[in-house]
Amino acid sequence: MSRRVRMWMVAIAGAAVAVGMGLAFVDLPSFGGSHHPYRDAAIHGSVAHQTANAVSAVNFDQRGLDTFGEESILFASIIGVSALLRPSKEEQEAGPSQPGRVMEATRILGYAFIPLVLIVGLDVISHGVITPGGGFQGGIILASGIHLLYVAGSYETLGRLRPVRLFEHGEAIGAGAFACLGIAGAATAMGFLANLIPLGSFGQLFSAGTVELLNGAVGIEVGSGVIVLIAKFLDQAILLGPQKS
C-alpha cells in the first residue's frame, strides 16, 4: 500500500475508533467519583493481612498470580534479549572497540553517585511493604546504579564489577524463589502463593508475611535481570563496536 492510502485508512478508522471510545467514555462513572467496590474489598483484605501498602498487598498477596506472570514476562524478555543480541561469530572475533573519551566532570559525578543510588535502591526494596515502592522499583534503581559506572566512563571496571553470568544466576534465583514460595503454599494445602508465614503487625518493617519475601525475590530478579538486559545492549553498542557495513 502506498503511504497516502495507508494514512487515509488510519485517519478514517482512527476517527471511527475515537467516536466509539467517546461513546463508551461518557457511559463511565464520572472521573474522581467515590464508588469503588473492589477498592473497599481490597483495602479490607490488605488490613486483614497486616500490609500497610495496599498496592503491595494487591500485587503480592491478593492478586499474586498476576505478579508471578509479570515477573515471568520480565524473565522471558531478558532471556529473549540475551538470545537475540548474542554476538555472531564475526563479531566475537572482531574484539572490543576503543571506548570513547569521557569528560572529567562526568566521571567524578558518576563515581560520586554510585553509593547514593545503591542506598536508595536498597531502601526502596526493603520498605516496599510500608511505603511506596517495592522490589521492582528498587531493583531497577540498583541496576541503574551499577550502570552509572558505564556512563562514568570505565567500561572495563564495569566488566569486572558486573560478571553477567553471576547476574544471570541471580535472575534465575529470584524468579525461581518466587515460584517456589508459590509452590510451598500449594504444598501446605493453603493454596498456591498463599500468605503462609506469620503476618507480624501493621506498619512494621517485617510485616505482611510472604509479601515481604516475594518483594525481596522480585528485587533480586529485577535488579539482576535489568543488569543483564542493559549489559547485552552495552555489549552490542560498545564492546562489539559500531557495525561495519
Binding site: F75, H169, A179, A189, F192
Partner: peptide, 19 residues
C-alpha cells in the same frame, strides 16, 4: 492444586535451565 502447578513448574524448570 495441580492447576497453578502446571503454570509454575515450567517456570521453575526454566530457572534451573538458565542456571
Amino acid at each position: 492444586q495441580l492447576a497453578p502447578l502446571s503454570i509454575a513448574i515450567p517456570i521453575v524448570v526454566a530457572c534451573v535451565m538458565l542456571s
